[in-house]
Design a binder for these strands. Structure first.
Lengths: 152, 152
DNA sequence: TTTATTATTGATATTAAATATCAAAATCGT
DNA sequence: ACGATTTTGATATTTAATATCAATAATAAA
């Protein structure tokens, strides 16, 4: 099995476990949204509206509210993360691996979002937190500026 | 002159210069909001609503819209920065010095916001940006978790 | 399998923050 | 002081997020 396929199964299990733990129900809509999101938006940062529009093509009966609620569920169960890049719309991103933590460079000209990871930054900030007796749950680093295309 | 007083003058000059450059007008309201904001909210992270309520005490005739617009002006002129800590409300913070860049640890329990600065992180991310030919305008790092008071 | 219980769905309504509008008032160059 | 331009404050509008609720679907119990 490829690592990607394996990760896919893990994600599914994580979600199912969450559903079970919270005594929620497994539904056709949730399955559909799960598949759409994780098949088509890896490495992307999709808004609720965008995902809803995408799903509507093949599943016109699924409502906006369900997409909205299901993305929240993905976030709560830890298989997706919610991002906010300052345009007022929440964006959702599939979490690729449990360990890797990446960050974003956002081009203020063209809106392109580049991802990066840096171990040194990670360890630095953990150290800072430790020094302040701060128990880290989550963190985000965003760099705003011009990408190589846009800075002429 | 104390460093704080000096910085105060510089900030005033920066703002006046911006007003002049953009051919805007200097008004009583802007002066009032300037003083309130920079005298009472150093190191704080105030929402428009909060600042408006504060100002209303002594200056009941100043409207919400003016406070809102003036904070935007402070941001545009580079003397304040806008923050977003995930509660849906924009927060404004006076910029203390031109060089120092600090970040935030936000306690998800009590809402307390702690500031920190770390040169190593700064240089790391500049390096990452350089590697990607990304022209940095701005960046933010936020750590979410529990402060020492709230973690048990 | 049938029924009872509980959660979900989709349409719509509500909320809340951000922003737009506009007539009256204030500022500023001449 | 005049005239052009900007600002102000009240209010309206927009937009994303979230709440509501009757109808429906999923699961548990009988």
């Amino acid at each position: 099995m490829t690592p990607v396929a394996k990760r896919k199964m893990e994600r599914r299990k994580t979600f199912n476990d969450y559903i079970a733990k919270k005594q929620l129900k497994s539904t056709k809509q949730r399955d559909t949204i799960f598949n759409e999101f994780f098949n088509n938006y890896m490495g992307k940062h999709v808004t609720v509206e965008e995902l809803y529009e995408g799903i509507k093509q093949n599943h016109p009966s699924i409502g906006f509210a369900t997409v909205y609620r299901t993305l929240k569920l993905f976030k709560e169960s830890g298989i997706a993360s919610e991002r906010n890049f300052g345009d007022g719309k929440a964006r959702y991103e599939p979490i690729r691996s449990e360990t890797e933590h990446h960050h974003h460079m956002i081009c203020t000209e063209c809106g392109q979002i580049m991802e990066f990871a840096n171990m040194q930054i990670e360890s630095c900030l953990l150290q800072v937190a430790k020094l302040n007796e701060f128990d880290v749950l989550n963190h985000k680093l965003e760099i705003y500026g011009k990408c190589s295309n846009c800075s002429d």
